[in-house]
Nucleic acid binder design. Structure first.
Length: 265
DNA sequence: TCCCAGGACAGCA
DNA sequence: TGCTGTCATGGG
C-alpha cells in the first residue's frame, strides 16, 4: 500500500458494476481483485471492508477516470424520480460512468459493433499486446490483414481507415468537446469509418462524458419494447423517445437500464 | 447446428 | 429519406 491509494466508500461504487457494465473492456477479474488498464496506466481494485481500494500511480488521473468528484447518490436519487428506473438503479447501484480516453473509446467501440463482450475484450487485448493502448500512428501502421489476424472480422477496414484519418490529423479528437452533442454525433458518424449512431453515442458518453445521448443497442431495444409494449425496430425513434423521457440524465439512465436488462432479462 | 452479440454500410426504392 | 441484405467471428 502506498499513499497514492484511492479509498472510497462502497455505497456508490461497486467494482463489478463499474467494470462489467459494458462501458470498458481492458480489465481482468482475478481471485482477489480486478486489474484495469487504460492508455499506458494501470490500477488494481479490491474491496476492504466497506471500502474500495484503488491502487494506482496517478491519483489525479484515476480520480477523474472513476468520476469520483461526482455524487452518484444524488444521480441515483434524481434517476429514481424518472419512469421505469427504480429496479435498474437498485440492481446496478454501484455503477459510475467512467471518463475514458476519447481515442481508446473510439477504437474500442468500433470493435464493439455487432459483437459480444468476451470477444471484444480479446480483440482489444491482442491489439494492445500486453502493453499500452496503441496511438493512432501505431494503429495506422498496420494493414487490413493485421486487424483480421487480431480477430476483428469485417471491422478490419474500419480500423485501418479511422486510425489513418486520426493519425494524419484529418479528424480532430479534441474539437468534439466544444461541439453541441447532436452536432458532435453527426460529425463522428460522417467522419469515422465504422462509427454509426449507436457507436457515436457510446463514444460521446464514455469518452466525452456527454449525458444527453442514449446508445440504442439490442438490449436497449428490448428495454424499450418492455416499457412501451411494442416491438419497435426504428432505433432512431427509440433513441429520441428515450432522450425525451430522460433528458440530461439519459446517459446515466441508459447504463443502468442496459446493465439490468443484460444481467436479469 | 443455430441464434445472437453494446451495428455499420452499401444498394436500392 | 427509409428500408433490406450483408458483413466475420465465436460464445452459448
Amino acid at each position: 500500500m502506498t499513499n497514492n491509494d484511492i479509498i472510497v466508500s462502497n455505497k456508490d461504487f461497486n467494482i463489478e458494476h463499474v467494470l462489467e457494465c459494458g462501458q470498458v473492456f481492458r480489465f481482468v477479474k482475478k481471485d482477489t481483485h480486478y486489474s484495469l488498464r487504460t492508455l499506458d496506466r494501470e490500477c488494481i481494485l479490491y474491496n476492504r471492508g466497506d471500502e474500495i481500494v484503488i491502487e494506482n500511480e496517478d491519483r489525479e488521473y484515476f480520480t477523474n477516470y472513476f468520476d469520483l468528484n461526482t455524487d452518484y447518490g444524488e444521480i441515483k436519487r434524481l434517476l429514481k424520480d424518472l419512469p421505469f428506473m427504480s429496479e435498474a438503479v437498485d440492481y446496478g447501484y454501484g455503477i459510475r460512468i467512467l471518463n475514458q480516453d476519447p481515442f481508446e473509446t473510439i477504437i474500442s467501440f468500433i470493435i464493439s459493433a455487432n459483437n459480444n463482450i468476451p470477444r471484444i475484450k480479446k480483440i482489444i487485448e491482442r491489439i494492445c499486446n500486453n502493453s499500452a493502448f496503441p496511438s493512432a500512428k501505431e494503429l495506422a501502421s498496420h494493414d487490413k490483414e493485421y486487424y483480421s489476424a487480431m480477430g476483428a472480422g469485417y471491422r478490419d477496414s474500419y480500423l485501418v481507415k479511422t486510425s489513418n484519418l486520426i493519425a494524419k490529423g484529418s479528424f480532430d479528437v479534441d474539437i468534439i468537446r466544444t461541439m453541441p452533442t447532436d452536432e458532435a454525433a453527426k460529425y463522428l458518424c460522417k467522419s469515422l469509418s465504422g462509427v454509426g449512431p449507436k457507436v457515436a453515442d457510446c463514444i460521446l458518453l464514455f469518452g466525452y462524458h456527454k449525458m444527453d445521448v442514449f446508445p440504442v443497442d439490442t438490449w436497449i431495444a428490448k428495454v424499450y419494447s418492455d416499457i412501451y409494449k411494442i416491438n419497435e425496430s426504428n432505433r432512431s425513434l427509440i433513441r429520441s423517445k428515450l432522450i425525451e423521457t430522460y433528458g440530461d440524465m439519459s446517459g446515466y439512465a441508459q447504463q443502468y437500464l442496459f446493465y439490468n436488462k443484460r444481467d436479469n432479462g
